[in-house]
């Protein structure tokens, strides 16, 4: 690998590559700021994409929230804070936000438990483990809608899951997994965590690989058992991986839509209606400005959750 890249570099040089970069001939900088190693222009494509697909929509999101944009008429007028008072006085938004936060917290817990468990289980580099890691990573690559529809079929009252349960327990099981006002939300978070656990596993595995063998060896010489090794050696070293996994699972699932939409559509009785489904519904009614306002509220809530979460987890990293 190393020798190859060197070779490529030399051959490129010998085939009359352009004259050495200007910086070589530029006089050394005296200021505090070092001259960057690449010209700033290299940032333009990335910045352009950011601008068009991230910055501009975000600004629109902010602007449209203060207008009466709808499917019903062609003109768009500013209406001040009317959308905010409408949206906040309507109990649905707060109810959905509550559902959304429960959903996100449960996903963060399950996804990390599964991911960490799998990483520890499949830590050794054996052939079987490598195969198992690949298999477990496949759901991550699958379309979330496909996952949702698959589980919808599996979890029907007369679906395969109940058929298996009936066979195992020896009695007819007709539980409506996706139609239980108190538990369906939990089943959904398990599906979500199942889909993404491969990614969490991969990150925890990477974390485990960074632990130097000397530390582990020292622990072994000290005579600690497996649990102690995990609790006092491996787990502390996994702190950065945990920060990343918890933060992405928590904040990523705040933005979830597809799995819930494909399995329950928000039902039964809006008990699984996460905010994005409500936004979609409002948008579909033609109330574009209200939907925009709600998504702005979602952005604010996610930001409010993100900062403390990340700060807290980072602090834990530092302590250790």
């Amino acid at each position: 690998m190393n020798s190859m890249s060197t070779k490529t570099w030399t051959s490129a040089e010998s085939v009359g590559a352009p004259s050495p970069p200007r910086r070589a001939s530029a006089p050394p900088r005296t200021g505090r700021v070092q001259k960057p190693s690449q010209p700033l222009a290299f940032l333009v494509p990335a910045m352009a994409i950011m601008l068009v697909f991230f910055f501009v929509p975000s600004v629109y999101n902010l602007v449209y929230a203060f207008t009466d944009w709808s499917s019903f008429k062609s003109s768009i007028n500013f209406v001040g804070l009317r959308n905010f008072s409408n949206v906040l006085s309507n109990g649905v938004l707060l109810g959905d936000l509550k559902v959304n936060i429960i959903y996100a917290v449960l996903v963060a817990i399950f996804q990390n438990l599964f991911g960490l468990g799998l990483a520890l289980l499949l830590e050794a580099d054996t052939r079987i483990n490598r195969f198992a890691r690949t298999m477990i990573f496949i759901p991550v690559l699958m379309s979330a809608l496909a996952v949702g529809y698959t589980f919808q079929a599996l979890l029907k009252p007369d679906g395969s899951v109940n058929a298996v349960l009936s066979f195992v327990t020896g009695q007819e099981v007709t539980y409506a997994w996706l139609n239980d006002p108190s538990w369906t939300l939990v089943w959904l978070t398990l599906i979500h965590a199942w889909k993404w656990m491969g990614l969490a596993m991969l990150i925890y595995l990477a974390g485990l690989k960074t632990i130097s063998s000397e530390v582990l060896e020292a622990a072994r010489i000290d005579g600690v058992n497996r649990w102690q090794t995990f609790r006092h050696v491996k787990f502390p070293f996994l702190a950065p991986a945990a920060t990343f996994n918890v933060a992405t699972a928590l904040l990523g699932s705040m933005n979830s839509f597809d799995i819930a939409q494909a399995t329950t559509g928000g039902g039964p009785g809006q008990t699984t209606e996460i905010l994005n489904i409500f936004i979609y519904r409002t948008f579909g009614q033609g109330l574009f400005a209200q939907a925009t306002t709600m998504s702005l509220v979602l952005v604010i809530v996610i930001s409010l959750m993100a900062f403390p979460t990340i700060v807290l987890l980072r602090r834990r990293e530092r302590v250790l």
Binding site: N86, L287, Q290
Partner: peptide, 15 residues
Amino acid sequence: ETTQAQFDQLAQAIG
């Protein structure tokens, strides 16, 4: 109550 709230919003939107 919820239906009326939606009705109000939509009616407002069409002016």
